[in-house]
Amino acid sequence: MSVSDVTARIAQIQAQLVQLGDTGGATTTASTGTGTTSASEFASALDSSLAAVGGSTDSSFDGAGATAAAGGASTGGSAVVAEARKYLGLPYVWGGESITKGVDCSGLVQSVYKTLGYDLPRLSADQARSGRKVESMAQAQPGDLIAWNNSSRNSGADHIAIYIGDGKMIEAPRTGLKVRIVDVPSTPDYIRRVLPDSGVASASRVSGAAPARVAAGTPYANLFSSAAAKYDLPATLLSAVAKQESGYNPRAVSPAGAQGLMQLMPGTAKGLGVTNSFDPAQAVDGAARMLRDLTRRFGSTELALAAYNAGPGAVLKYNGVPPYPETQRYVRNVMSMMKAAS
């Protein structure tokens, strides 16, 4: 029997055990003679046992083809699935986002992705607009988000889950039930991919990727290169944003109150931990972290730039670059400067 066959069978057993756990806390007796073990504990033990002999319970689920990074850590869809499985057996808690106390459907999604460095919105309706659209379940990959609009009272998705492959998903279903693996019950209304596609080294390079170094003589070139290496961004992106925002002027202040080289609003700067937006080093570091997070959230450099200019809410509202002339011009200008530097 192949490793993929073994892992598929383990996934089936895990789902059955979780279902047992959902129907009254049934336990299974371990052969070690140490007493009873909960369904989620036994499922976790299966994961550990297979890993100990060189396998991975998620290897058959990584549709993106990512297998291991330095040190053997899993990446891509397999990492999302592995993280989501840690929540199996937890109770559904409305508004919950705790790996120890319980989660609701969007709390599960947000918590899993946050652990992997992706900043998703809290509400299922907003999560179902994050990343990129996947056209059908035939194209869905492990780690994709699948969501449904089950109520005419709501605008957008009101239930969301994480696809794990083989027609199955992990969800926090409803009050009285626990986080579980189930078959995808129907065609989702939304299928979204937050992760970079196969062959893309990092989400920050989904589109518009540029050389890591800026041209000699560029103002603050060392700061851009350092932040680019730290946050896995093209240095030319940071340089182009600085040129577009302030003309490389670290003392610039906009009519709206944006400050410094990267034109951070005071509230934004505070949230990024930037105590002085007029300090070029702090400004570049804060802006780079913000652009990294926006690129991971929306899946492309263009959408990250649109969110940097107009705010994430505008990108979510229009499901793309907002139809604001200023924002569209901003995105075109920055992308053109990056292209010219390549």
Rank of each mutant, 00 (worst) to 15 (best):
K101A: 12
Y92M: 08
N150M: 13
S124F: 02
M169L: 06
D166Y: 14
S151G: 14
S155V: 04
K178W: 03
S151V: 14
G95M: 03
A147I: 09
G107P: 02
L177N: 14
Y118A: 05
K114I: 04
Q141T: 10
V184Q: 06
S106F: 01
R122W: 08
L145C: 03
D189I: 12
Y163P: 03
I181F: 12
I146N: 13
L90Y: 01
A172K: 04
V179L: 04
R132M: 14
L145G: 02
V179A: 01
N150H: 15
K168W: 09
P188D: 07
R180L: 07
P142F: 00
G165N: 07
Y190V: 14
L120A: 10
A161I: 01
K86F: 03
T175I: 06
A84W: 04
I181G: 08
P142I: 00
D166C: 12
D126K: 10
V134C: 04
N149F: 00
D197P: 02
A201K: 12
Q127P: 12
L116G: 10
K133V: 15
G167D: 15
L120R: 05
G156K: 08
V103Q: 02
V109H: 02
T100Q: 09
G165E: 08
R180M: 07
S202R: 10
D183A: 14
S136G: 07
G95E: 01
L177V: 05
R132I: 08
L88R: 07
A140D: 10
N149Q: 15
A203G: 08
V134A: 01
N154W: 10
D119R: 06
N150S: 15
W94C: 11
D189T: 14
S136A: 00
V112N: 04
M169S: 04
Y190L: 13
G176M: 00
S151M: 13
P188K: 05
A125V: 10
K133Y: 12
S130Q: 03
V206L: 01
V194T: 05
N150F: 11
T187R: 11
Y190P: 13
S111H: 09
S136L: 02
D183H: 12
R85D: 15
N154D: 14
V93W: 02
N154Q: 14
Q141R: 13
A203M: 05
P142Y: 10
S151T: 15
K133G: 00
L123N: 12
L90W: 03
I164K: 03
A161Y: 04
I162M: 01
K114Y: 07
G167C: 14
Q141W: 09
A147L: 14
L90S: 01
E171R: 05
D183F: 10
N154M: 11
T115K: 09
L120G: 08
I99W: 04
L145M: 05
S152Y: 02
A84V: 08
W94M: 13
K114E: 06
A157H: 06
T115E: 10
